[in-house]
Design a protein around this nucleic acid. Structure first.
Lengths: 126, 126, 126, 126
DNA sequence: GTGGTCTAGACCACA
DNA sequence: GTGGTCTAGACCACG
């Protein structure tokens, strides 16, 4: 899987990495149990410091997306916790996005059209 | 309309203000043309630096949510641009939220349930 | 509150800081809402790099012990989540400690004597 | 006795082995004088490097849990030192666990409930 | 001035 | 060779 960084983005590099890996897991480009590049390898590949990659991996580990250990390097977790709900933060973000959409004249169906565009891909019961 | 700041939030204060005003417009608590408090008044009301409120207002103005003029102070815009689409940034954020939801085992219908919870409110053709 | 680092310890510096702050909260030396030293101040005080202090604070934040924000610096959280249970990791650690105690000939009452020695102090319903 | 390694654990493998053997002694699954598998055998059984098992055995030997001799291989010690006290490190760990418990709202009796859950098992005067 | 991010380079325990 | 830790020093957004 290829990680691409946006240059002038507000979102910090380590979080960009985290987001792309989560999306990779979600749409099936990263399979459960699959090995991720080592900290150093990924750092070199995308031309950043390895501490930054480390930070991204630590975040993913803490969130339960990956497992890191010295024997096997870094791997996508096999079983994700099926909380079946958004965090309150995520729900707030969604609420904000919906507000913006409504003000811009989007209907519920317009919005759901976009949701379906992304929900269709990869893993997840549709 | 009352603006409440979250204490330890990652979201910077000026953006919290911006978000709440956008949501206020979206759900009808702020009517088109309605007058907003002055920078100074709002700053005092919520106990923060007026520079911060100013920053929020500038952002809102730049995004086309409010207009400022010397005679009438700050007012909610009368006609919003009906782009009927999300900005690319917003769409990316939505894509990320959907990815997280899918990994956590949410179905499309689970997700749309939450969308509807927020789409039901106030302004916007439903 | 004074933080003292053990020099040759196996436990990393950032975790030592974290532990001492948690214990400070627990025994009342740090009150809810109390301001903690800034990242830089604490780093200078104990003679380490500020990134290390930052790491400790991030951990404490993530665990819900403190709140950090740019307006107010770092503060002890007002209301802790009352989960009223140990994490599975902590329970495993306790199990291990008890195993060691038993092999060394300690009775249940010996062990509880030590527990009481520490439970008596500060905050917490006894 | 079966040794099972936790996959993404923070605890290094050699220490996981050490801990499980100590717990095995404590709850009676390993009897005093009982023969332990050879380094090589155990390494093969759990699929790890024999250096790692060796490290665990050396630690256990140094702590006085096992004895090794050339003729009989590795055996659980017959008589453990009855110090009837925890090491200072262990006591510090316990203090930390108690601190965390208190902050999370556990009472002394809640905590002792968990202690009893583990103290009840196997060897040791209860 | 605050926390947050990032770098370049180093060392360590673990396996 | 792996992840984890730490340093010294820098820059940034926020307030």
């Amino acid at each position: 899987m290829i990680i691409t960084l946006q240059d002038g983005s507000e979102v910090p590099v380590f979080k960009q990495i985290r987001n792309q890996i989560v999306m990779g897991i979600s749409d099936g480009r990263l399979a459960p149990g699959e090995k991720l590049p080592t900290v150093r390898a990924l750092a070199e590949e995308i031309g950043i410091n390895s501490m930054t990659v480390n930070k991204a991996y630590q975040l993913l580990k803490q969130e339960g997306y990956i497992i890191t250990d010295r024997r096997n390097g870094v791997r996508v977790k096999e079983n994700f916790e099926q909380t079946k709900g958004l965090t309150t933060e995520s729900e707030q973000e969604l609420a904000r996005l919906i507000s913006e959409a409504k003000v811009k004249g989007m209907t519920r169906d317009d919005f759901i059209g976009i949701v379906d565009k992304y929900f269709g891909k990869g893993r997840g019961k549709v």
